[in-house]
């Protein structure tokens, strides 16, 4: 873990043509996951464009971050709208695998 990993979480939102890209950057843990949850809740509940959460800038995530993404997935399934996780770092991919959630989400290597 390097000092750059501990930068505050920032979240960019990009509305593309027929796709919403949400791009958190920074560590997602018990301190920062409420921030991500608030952004996801306010952006996922309306609209039907497919959503891509680009995790390429997330070097670390704990179970509170995973829980936030599970909640987002459930929201999208209710609407319904597609949710894809993109560009998982090795560390983040590892927690999804340990949690046996890697098969629950659609995961891609790149943002389309």
């Amino acid at each position: 873990m390097h000092s750059k990993d501990h930068a505050p979480l920032t979240i960019d939102i990009e509305q593309r043509e027929e796709m919403l890209v949400i791009r958190p950057s920074g560590e997602i843990d018990l301190a920062s996951s409420p921030q991500l949850r608030a952004v996801l809740q306010s952006n996922l509940a309306t609209g039907s464009d497919p959503v891509v959460i680009d995790l390429g800038g997330v070097p670390y995530m704990d179970s509170s971050g995973v829980a936030t993404l599970v909640e987002a997935l459930q929201t999208c399934r209710r609407i319904p709208r597609d949710l894809t996780l993109a560009r998982l770092t090795d560390r983040v991919a590892s927690i999804f695998k340990i949690s046996k959630l890697d098969a629950v989400f659609t995961v891609t290597e790149d943002v389309a």
Binding site: S63, A67, V70, E71, Q74, I98, S99
Partner: peptide, 14 residues
């Protein structure tokens, strides 16, 4: 139980 996909409760499992 991890077959119950829902937010939360993963910490002890990890």
């Amino acid at each position: 139980d991890l077959t119950d996909v829902r937010p939360g409760g993963l910490g002890v499992h990890l």
